[in-house]
C-alpha cells in the first residue's frame, strides 16, 4: 500500500517540477498529464484500501477531463506555434498588467 502512495507522490513531484521548470509547452503539458495520473494512482490505491468504488469512479472522471483538456490544450499550442514559430510558454506573455 505505502509503495503505491509513495510512487504517486514521486510522480506528482516530478510532474510539478516539470511544469515549473520546463519552457516547452508540450513538455509542460506532458508533466501536467503526469500529475493527473499520479493523482489517479492515489485515488485507485485509496479505493482499494477502503474497499469501495468511489476512488475508482473519480479516476475515470479525471481521465475524461484529462482527455478533453488534451484536445483543447493541444489545439491552443498548435495555434500558438503556427503564429509564433515557437512553443515556449515564456514567449506567450502578452496577457498581463
Amino acid at each position: 500500500m505505502t509503495q503505491y502512495v509513495v510512487l504517486s507522490a514521486i510522480l506528482f513531484t516530478i510532474g510539478c517540477v516539470g511544469v515549473l521548470t520546463r519552457r516547452n509547452a508540450l513538455v509542460v503539458f506532458m508533466c501536467v498529464e503526469l500529475m493527473l495520473n499520479a493523482c489517479n494512482l492515489a485515488f485507485v490505491a485509496f479505493a482499494r484500501q477502503h474497499g469501495n468504488l468511489d476512488g475508482q469512479i473519480t479516476a475515470f472522471f479525471v481521465m475524461v477531463v484529462a482527455a478533453a483538456e488534451v484536445v483543447i490544450g493541444l489545439a491552443i499550442i498548435m495555434t500558438i506555434f503556427r503564429t509564433r514559430r515557437s512553443a515556449s510558454v515564456d514567449d506567450a506573455s502578452l496577457l498581463k498588467y
Partner: peptide
C-alpha cells in the same frame, strides 16, 4: 498587486502550488 499578473504562465503555476 497587479504586478503579480506578469504574463508568465510558470509563475502562475508557482502561485497555484
Amino acid at each position: 498587486m497587479r504586478r503579480l499578473q506578469n504574463g508568465f504562465v510558470r509563475s502562475y503555476a508557482l502561485s497555484v502550488l
